[in-house]
Amino acid sequence: MYVTIPNECSAEISTPPLASTSPKSAEARLKSGAYLYFEGDEVEWLYQVTSGVLRLTRLLADGRRQVIAFGYPGDIVGFPAADLHHTDCEALTDVRLQPFRRTHLENGDGDPKLHSALLQAALREISGMQDHFMMLGRKSATEKLASFLCVLAERVGEDLGAYRQINLPMSRSDIADFLGLTTETISRTFTQLRKSQIIAIDNIHTIIIQRPTALLSLAEGDNA
């Protein structure tokens, strides 16, 4: 999942469950904290998340960590870069995945519909990453966090009366490394949003959006 906020509070559309005329591989399962693959591993499989949340990370040359994306149900992870995985991939919760052989992406492996669906998913990933990097360079800390919460609210939020509730399986440091900020800045910005009564913090992993219009305005850079 990449954070992109164009002109409205909407998330990138995830890929629906991929249909295949070929026999499906057995579903894969990961426990929270387990790794699906590591950066530099050879790519043999692509995976569509069916439940749970993954975290994709890279280590920079100076040792700092960059969170590249979070994989939510419907997302496909594992696209190759020069035949290798270009991130580590760790389960933030218990995760279920549907594996697809890499050959389905490269030559269809006898299933042209699946081949086309995987290509479209790869193109969406490239577009989403470009938008995310642009957001990292152009938005303020408040705009970044508001954008992140808007996307989650739209994609995986649950109605709670007049409000919207979202669960955050990732830590504050994960969010900071995803948005190009420090953990202290993320914590301070959460506090500012809470004091403005735009959100309420039920616990460290549960956020209640009380004023979604105000949150969207912040995401779009309207701080008036």
Rank of each mutant, 00 (worst) to 15 (best):
L84W: 03
D88I: 09
F148Y: 15
K113D: 12
G71K: 05
G63V: 11
I126H: 11
A122Y: 05
V67R: 02
A146W: 01
R58G: 01
Q165W: 01
D75M: 10
D109L: 13
L145M: 12
F70K: 08
R58W: 00
R64N: 14
C89W: 11
R102H: 01
K113E: 15
I186F: 08
P73L: 01
H86C: 02
L84K: 15
H104W: 04
G63K: 10
R102C: 03
D159T: 02
T185C: 10
E106Q: 09
E125F: 10
E143W: 01
P112W: 03
L181H: 03
N167L: 13
D109T: 04
L160C: 11
A81I: 07
I186R: 08
D174H: 15
D62I: 06
E90R: 15
L118R: 13
A176F: 10
N167T: 12
I175L: 06
D174L: 05
F133L: 15
M134R: 13
F70M: 09
E158V: 14
T142C: 07
L59W: 02
H132S: 05
L84A: 07
L105H: 05
A82G: 04
F148G: 00
A69R: 14
S187W: 02
P169C: 08
D111F: 00
V151S: 02
R65G: 05
S116Q: 14
G78L: 08
M135P: 00
A141L: 12
D111Q: 04
N167E: 13
H115K: 12
R64H: 10
L118G: 09
P112K: 05
S171W: 09
M170I: 06
V95D: 04
S147Y: 02
G128C: 02
H115T: 06
D94H: 14
G71A: 13
V67K: 01
A81Y: 10
P169M: 15
Q98R: 14
S147H: 05
M135R: 08
N167P: 01
N167H: 13
F79P: 03
D159V: 07
M134W: 09
Q120G: 01
A141S: 15
L105T: 05
L152D: 01
G71L: 12
D83M: 09
I68V: 15
A122I: 03
K139P: 00
V67E: 05
A81S: 10
Y163L: 11
E184Y: 08
K113S: 07
D62P: 05
D111G: 06
V67C: 04
H86E: 11
R124T: 09
Y163M: 08
G157A: 13
E125G: 11
L84V: 08
T93S: 14
